[in-house]
Amino acid sequence: MSNNHYFTTQRKVRFEHCDPAGIVFYPRYFEMINAVVEDWFSEALNCSFAELISSGRGVPTVSLQTQFHAPSRLGEILCFSLVPQALGRTSLTLEIIATHQDQRRLTAQVTLVLIDLRTGRPLPWPDPIRQFISPDET
Rank of each mutant, 00 (worst) to 15 (best):
L114M: 13
I23W: 04
G58H: 02
N46C: 09
A44H: 09
H69D: 15
V37C: 10
F25G: 01
R28I: 02
D19N: 11
D102T: 13
T107K: 14
T111D: 11
F80Y: 13
V62M: 14
L78G: 01
C18N: 09
R104S: 13
L112Q: 15
S63H: 15
A44Q: 07
F49I: 13
R28H: 15
K12M: 07
Q65L: 15
F68G: 07
T61Q: 10
V37T: 09
K12S: 06
P20F: 08
D116N: 15
P60T: 10
Q103T: 14
T9F: 01
E31S: 13
L78M: 12
W40L: 00
P71S: 14
Q10L: 00
L74N: 06
F25I: 03
I77W: 11
T107G: 08
E38D: 13
A108I: 07
T93F: 05
Y29F: 14
C47H: 11
L92E: 02
R73H: 14
R14Q: 08
G88I: 11
D102K: 14
A98L: 04
I33Y: 12
L94C: 11
T99E: 13
Q85H: 12
K12H: 02
Q109A: 12
F68V: 06
R28D: 13
T9A: 01
P84V: 01
S55R: 06
S72W: 02
I33C: 12
V36G: 02
R14C: 08
F80S: 01
D116I: 11
Q65C: 13
I53S: 06
V83C: 05
Q10Y: 02
F30R: 07
Q85T: 12
Q67L: 14
A70V: 03
I115V: 15
V113E: 04
D39I: 00
L94E: 08
H100W: 04
E31C: 10
R104I: 14
I96K: 02
W40N: 07
Q109R: 15
M32L: 14
S42W: 06
T111N: 11
A35D: 12
T9H: 03
F25K: 04
Q101F: 12
P84I: 01
F80W: 08
G22Q: 07
Y29H: 11
L82K: 01
I96R: 00
S91G: 07
I77Q: 14
T9S: 04
K12P: 00
L114Q: 05
F49L: 13
W40R: 03
Q67P: 07
A50Y: 10
G56W: 04
R105M: 09
G75P: 05
R89Q: 15
A35K: 07
G22A: 10
L106S: 02
R11E: 10
P20G: 05
Y29D: 03
R57Y: 04
D116A: 12
L87I: 08
